[in-house]
Nucleic acid binder design. Structure first.
Lengths: 119, 119
DNA sequence: GCAGAAGTACGATCGCTGTCAAACTTTGAT
DNA sequence: ATCAAAGTTTGACAGCGATCGTACTTCTGC
């Protein structure tokens, strides 16, 4: 059980890494769900449109960027939003993202208004 | 083709698109330079570590996301930061990025040789 | 001990995007 | 008219990352 994966310290948070984590709609949705719930969530209890192995990958990216903290409870892995630490490193960033996530409905990544060549 | 290229309206700004634009260190640097200068800058006057055609590509991505406005002056193309409109669409986002850009790696995302504060 | 549940690790695709070089266009100056 | 400056367009290429399926590891309950 106690096998906790490595987590970065606040002093090691990197903006580039955080943005790369948050640019993916699936991962941003995970953050949004944690923020909305206000409590920790099991990996399997998220609403994610991908397979298990892909989900694992997303959680790892979020963890290594410092956005979430993971710990085991039985066979389940719990996920906690590191909101306070993120706010300390990058004030206003999570606020801006979680807020605008509500209004402009996230359309899962692909374009809405701009012309793109056909395939 | 001395005409102005197409620019999106504020109501059409898309968070996903804006994040995809800002996740690239070169493009974030362009935004930072515009923000720091406080005035419009010619394409050729930016400090960019890429070739001209790549720079053109970056400017297009920024423009289509709504981050900059482009207009011609002679043979030169000027670039203006659409700060107010971005703030209207995504309050706090640019603030968070330009501010933490000072501390964390806005350094092209590769080798960030910057002071790290302890906790 | 065994079976099932919950994730993880490992390859393998596959599409996207950042990059460049070369050719082209438009504008301003000589 | 000619030439140079400033960007754009096009085509090609390389690398990264999101995705999946399968096999593997741990833990809980019986």
């Amino acid at each position: 059980m106690g096998r906790t994966p490595p987590h970065p310290q606040v002093s090691q948070f990197d903006l580039q890494q955080v943005l790369e984590a948050l640019v993916d709609p699936v991962r941003r949705s995970v953050v949004a769900q944690l923020d909305a719930a206000g409590e920790d969530i099991r990996c399997g209890d998220f609403d994610m449109p991908v397979g298990k192995s892909t989900a694992t990958h997303h959680f790892r990216v979020l963890r290594e960027a410092g956005l979430i903290r993971q710990y085991y409870v039985g066979t389940s892995r719990m996920n906690a939003l590191r909101r306070a630490e993120m706010d300390e490193a990058f004030p206003g960033l999570l606020d801006a993202l979680t807020r605008s996530g509500k209004n402009s409905g996230e359309n899962s990544g692909k374009n809405t208004v701009l012309p793109v060549r056909a395939t």
